[in-house]
Amino acid sequence: MKAVIQCGGRGSRLMPYTMVLPKPLMPVGSRPVLELLIGWLCRNGISEVIITTGYLGCLIKTLFGDGSKWGIDITYTDEVEPLGTIGPLSLLRDVLDEPFVVMNGDVLTDLNLARMIDFHARMDASVTIATIARQTKLDFGVLEGPPNGRIQGFREKPCLTHHVSMGVYFLQPDVIRHIPRGMPFGFDDLILRLLSLKAKVVSYRHDGLWLDIGRVEDFKKAQELPWNDLPPAYEAIQEFAEAALV
Rank of each mutant, 00 (worst) to 15 (best):
P22F: 00
G167H: 05
L25D: 01
I74K: 07
L92C: 02
G145L: 04
E98C: 06
E48S: 13
S165H: 09
T85D: 05
G9P: 01
E242H: 13
N44H: 15
M1F: 07
P226A: 05
A3I: 04
R122D: 15
W70M: 08
A130G: 10
D189K: 00
I191G: 08
R93F: 05
I74E: 06
I38L: 14
T131I: 11
F64E: 01
D188A: 13
L108R: 01
I46Y: 04
L245E: 10
S12C: 11
L194E: 07
L111F: 00
K220C: 10
L92G: 03
Q238C: 06
R181Q: 07
D174S: 12
V33E: 02
K23Q: 14
L91W: 01
L111G: 01
G45Q: 09
L14H: 04
I38A: 05
L21S: 09
Y17I: 15
I129D: 09
G145P: 10
E35A: 08
A130L: 10
L230P: 02
Y76T: 09
V95T: 15
I74S: 09
I179R: 02
G84A: 09
D106M: 02
L37T: 15
G87A: 03
V80F: 12
W70L: 10
G87M: 05
L37F: 06
G167I: 02
P232G: 00
S203G: 11
G153S: 10
I237A: 11
D229M: 13
V20M: 12
K137L: 14
D97P: 00
A233I: 14
Q223W: 06
S90K: 08
A133C: 05
I179F: 05
H162C: 08
G67E: 03
W210V: 15
R122T: 13
P231M: 00
A233R: 12
D118V: 11
M19F: 07
Q223M: 09
E48Y: 08
